[in-house]
Nucleic acid binder design. Structure first.
Lengths: 220, 220
DNA sequence: CTCTAATTCGAACGTTCGTTCGAACTCAGT
DNA sequence: ACTGAGTTCGAACGAACGTTCGAATTAGAG
């Protein structure tokens, strides 16, 4: 209980921090996280056993526990790192852009680009959202809420700027649905790249949310 | 191995058929399916144990195996029944409607209404789509493909009717994303009913897919 | 090379998993 | 009341689960 668990806790805190340090421990941990992400992606969190993770990362079963104290914490580290990264990138990409429509297009592009470049991680994030409990769950939920609120802000800005009327909540959640569902169907050999899909989804969503208030609702 | 497994196989075939017969066996089975659906919804397929299902349905662990031969087959029965029902309802609702826009609105309304009325079943269908293997998986996949193709047909009709240009595949999958994502956020105490959400999502989607070809893509 | 701390591992822990089996019970038809 | 099929269950199976522990190995500073 003494030294390993302490070391693991310290590094876990370091994991998302500045990259420079990158001790041997940190490198090995992030390798394990990468392999674990693939396994969770393929078999699901509950469906993946610690022995699966051991096989995938080429380390003994017991050896894994030197790097994290439980399977649940491992999932937590994956989700937190993935989510933190996508939020970070979004913020930096939004800097200096002021046109509301353009900002939403950047939001969509950032989300889809990261999603397709890190499909496994994003699938684990979307699909295993309910797998964590209590403390772990709430920490990830906080990041999710921040991300959600950013999107709400972008849409409210557009509404104000263009004088539009629609339910922000439904719009935001519809947009997330469009984008996140991609993990169920995207096939790199058939489908276009992130940029083009972002353009097409952006077209549909933005046109859908702008332009007057209603389509013709004839017939009955 | 003799009589029980035969009986179970026979009734499973009967499960989705005409309602009139409804033997004692069939009634009990569908009660079990209902409870199992709730448990799978809450804990996930892998996360739910047969002992959980036994507790939820008020039947002994061994007793369950009189009604189906494996946990996987139980999930299959749930998915097949849910999917078959929603396709059936859609077909009957589409009869007699010829306006392409109206037909798409019916598709959306049917999907969301059934989704919210059978949240547990639809979540198990959406969220556990990859849990089945081989024969079970392909049978459900066939229904899914049929449902998908119906939606593609509706959109292609709209395109032809209105002379529009967009990627049907991306549009259909975006629409499914918008709709299916609902299981992650819908809260009956906060959110509107299916009819209103269907109207709002229909507005966004249809407006997005109609109206010329492009939004103004100014700025760079 | 030496010594210490960091890292890895084989073996085993107690628990829970999905499934099986034969005995017991319930019920409809006689 | 008797019978046979339909239904339920307690008990147990071997396998797999997440986790632990102490010993063995390795790496880096002196």
């Amino acid at each position: 209980m003494a030294s390993p668990s302490t070391a693991a806790r310290v590094s876990a805190r370091r994991y998302r921090a500045a990259s420079p340090p990158a001790t041997r421990f940190d490198k090995r941990l992030s390798e394990i996280l990468t392999h674990a992400t693939d396994v969770f992606c393929k078999k699901g969190y509950e469906g993946a056993s610690m022995r699966d993770l051991s096989r995938a990362s080429g380390m003994s079963l017991a050896g894994l526990y030197y790097y994290f104290e439980s399977k649940e914490r491992l999932l937590f580290l994956i989700q937190k790192h993935t989510f933190t990264t996508i939020v970070q990138r979004l913020k930096s990409r939004l800097q200096g852009i002021s046109d509301p429509e353009q900002r939403i297009r950047i939001f969509i592009l950032n989300h889809l680009e990261y999603f397709l470049a890190n499909q496994a991680g994003m699938k684990v994030l979307s699909h295993e959202a309910e797998a964590l409990k209590n403390g772990f769950a709430s920490e990830v939920a906080a990041i999710k809420r921040e991300y959600y609120r950013i999107c709400v802000g972008l849409l409210d800005d557009l509404k104000r700027d263009r004088g539009l009327q629609f339910s922000t909540r439904i719009a935001v959640l519809s947009l997330f649905g469009m984008m996140n569902w991609i993990y169920t169907w995207h096939n790199p050999k058939v489908d276009a790249d992130a940029e083009q899909i972002a353009r097409e989804m952006g077209d549909v969503f933005l046109r859908g949310v702008m332009n007057g208030t209603r389509t013709r609702r004839d017939v009955r």
